[in-house]
Design a protein around this nucleic acid. Sequence first.
DNA 1: CACCATTAATACTTTAAAGCGATTACTGAA
DNA 2: TTCAGTAATCGCTTTAAAGTATTAATGGTG
Lengths: 317, 317
Amino acid sequence: MELRHLRYFVAVAEELSFTRAAERLHIGQPPLSQQIQALEAEVGARLLERSKRWVRLTEAGKLFLADARRVLALSEQAVLTAQRAERGEAGELRIGFTFSTPFTPLFARVINLYRQRFPQVTLTLRELATLHQIDAIEAHELDLGFIRPPEVPIAEGIGITELRHDPLLLVLPASSPLARKKRVAISELQGLPFVMYPKNAGTGIYPQIFRLCRAAGFVPKIGMEAGEASTIIGLVAAGCGVSVLPDSFNRMHMEGVVYRPLADPAATTELWLAQRRTDSSPLVAAFIALAREAVSELDEMDEPSRAPKKAGRTDRT
Amino acid sequence: MELRHLRYFVAVAEELSFTRAAERLHIGQPPLSQQIQALEAEVGARLLERSKRWVRLTEAGKLFLADARRVLALSEQAVLTAQRAERGEAGELRIGFTFSTPFTPLFARVINLYRQRFPQVTLTLRELATLHQIDAIEAHELDLGFIRPPEVPIAEGIGITELRHDPLLLVLPASSPLARKKRVAISELQGLPFVMYPKNAGTGIYPQIFRLCRAAGFVPKIGMEAGEASTIIGLVAAGCGVSVLPDSFNRMHMEGVVYRPLADPAATTELWLAQRRTDSSPLVAAFIALAREAVSELDEMDEPSRAPKKAGRTDRT
DNA sequence: CACCATTAATACTTTAAAGCGATTACTGAA
DNA sequence: TTCAGTAATCGCTTTAAAGTATTAATGGTG
């Protein structure tokens, strides 16, 4: 049985005439008769009752007509859906992000924009550390990843789009003498206890702080560890020490805590968007385009005068 | 486009190899390649990504695969329906039910009554979780479904008939100190391990237990998961924890297990009958009428004095 | 009542396209 | 570098769908 049979049958059932149906289908009447006969033989049921003068649907034919119409409609729908997907308007995108990403306004903006513009695309979000994301993207378990620059060189098959370039913020108790300064040099932190993510959490910020401190000539003293940003900030408020977080966390206000920029120009963190280099999916392309759009949009809004620290959308592909 | 194209595409998508798919289809590999190319040209979308080494589905291909399967299934269904009509059978009702339904006396009663009264109607029964049933009904893969209230709002096109309103039962090891009480409050379950259906099984009872516990001020501790009621009861008997099941399971006796009602008045579960709202089939209408009949019949039998907990056959259509 | 117009089915021919076998081109692994 | 495995391409054969001509039956009309 082929769709052709169903199309022919529906035509005959609607016209209740082989001749008129054949005209509508732009074929001759004899082949139509034959095809309908073949259909009935294959279905194993008489669908049409014919005399030399008229054609009528049998009970089986009525039921089959309804089903045939549904099959045809569904098959057309399937084509349309596939075309939408081809244009990047439908499908699924699996996107990874690091723990710190949800706090960047950019992230929320991009996700929302994308949801709005491509409502037929299912977005699946998964929190994963940078290195795990890269593995998952290569294994086709993720399509895109919001990541931070890893310590190790990135795999060959992964393409990167730099999105933002944010300063690192020092998180201080308001009572600290350093809170009176506008910006703080890293060397001034010598001896202070640090509140950090656990070492094995896989976050890029832990080794980065170590590097910065070492460059300033000392080893940071780890005072406490916490697995969540809000906990870290709370511990700082409680006077347990200082911490360093990406700029995006400055929206998390808390009594007794102040944020100060670090003087060191190397004290920045980048937000990258990773993808398979060979991935030709229009969904992915559209997402990246949108992310860039959102970057420049937020850059302009942010502070057009003060020359915002942005990554300039450089591609490393 | 013909069904042949869909059959071929599904084969390739399942085998992810033209060669193997061709073998399965009993045709040569070259014509298969050609047909797939023709299909892609007609659909206007690339469905398969091929290298010389492997074949992979594109995003469009994934969506098209799902639709193609549905088209093929529906076309086969159409043939069966027509054949049944040809044999003079009045039709077919495809009815879904949740794992817990067969234990309700109501269910057995309705099915038997219907079989008796409409012997020419073929009843096809399928066990499916509530949410899957709703999808299947919308996709015309089921006509009716015995379901439990889902967490999420129910789809627009689905009509509901409330049948029963049963208490939830606590399943306890007979050795438990709680087994000495006549009824148990949910708060007394704090700290006990729960034996539950897997979270993603789609059953409504999982989130309901969570809600009840949260209302009682604690988070349930999941001790073990099992996909079958008998297994769950077995695990309870083995002392692995407690569980909560619909009242209807009290017929399943097992050594070392006792059932106790829960004190919380919110600890009830409803049995609903779902249908397509647009479904005008007289078979469906007759079934629903019969179900209501059976409800009031059982209500009277049950305990006319003690005011049985029933749903009063309210319609939410 | 005979004749005609209309309709679906049949017989046969033509044509389109599905399928086949042989081969090529490319890829990744040994 | 070679080899095995894979999808695409080419030329040809076979299948079956569509076309043409005709027939058989039916109901209406003069």
